[in-house]
């Protein structure tokens, strides 16, 4: 009974929670693209023009993918894209950590300006695991 309950409510609850989290993360950045651009530039990975494009593009990708998870429309594509995004974020965080940069991760818009690499990486890995779980539990529409 417990397993059926978990399957019936647990997976949709996780899907909706993840969707809401990505919408929240994307909305914060979409409302202040200049602050998000600064966060991207802090990583010193992209040339200016590419950083500007990413500052406008990534927030909407997160919002659309988050919405897809909640509505369970195009959700297989959304899971794949969010998984890819998280892998990119993890690689960028690791790169900044190795180079000794003292920067805020910018994951949820402008932060406190301090580096919390362990926390950010743990969170991203947990999110990646949650997306993997959802991909395993839900087949394509």
């Amino acid at each position: 009974m417990e397993t059926i309950g978990l399957r019936r409510w647990g997976t949709p609850a996780l899907r909706i929670a993840l969707g809401a989290l990505f919408i929240f993360a994307g909305a914060g950045k979409a409302l202040d693209p200049a602050a998000f651009l600064k966060s991207i530039q802090n990583y010193q990975l992209l040339p200016h023009s590419a950083a500007v494009a990413a500052a406008y593009y990534l927030p909407y990708l997160e919002i659309f993918c988050g919405t897809s998870l909640i509505l369970r429309r195009l959700h297989a594509g959304a899971l794949a894209l969010l998984g890819g995004l998280l892998l990119v974020f993890i690689a960028a965080l690791l790169g900044a950590w190795v180079r000794g940069l003292e920067i805020d991760c910018g994951c949820f818009g402008a932060g406190d300006g301090k580096a919390h690499y362990g926390l950010a990486l743990t969170r991203d890995l947990a999110l990646l695991a949650a997306l993997g779980f959802l991909a395993w539990r839900s087949g394509p529409e």
């Binding site: 200049a34 651009l37 909407y60 990708l61 659309f64 297989a76 594509g77």
Partner: peptide, 28 residues
């Protein structure tokens, strides 16, 4: 299916970003 769905989402995000780039000027 995954690729098709991802393509739709990438395109939609691109359109929204293009609209945002015109409507929310980037003021560094």
């Amino acid at each position: 299916i995954v690729l098709r769905q991802a393509g739709v989402l990438l395109l939609a995000a691109g359109l929204a970003a293009a609209v945002a780039a015109f409507s929310i000027p980037l003021r560094e």
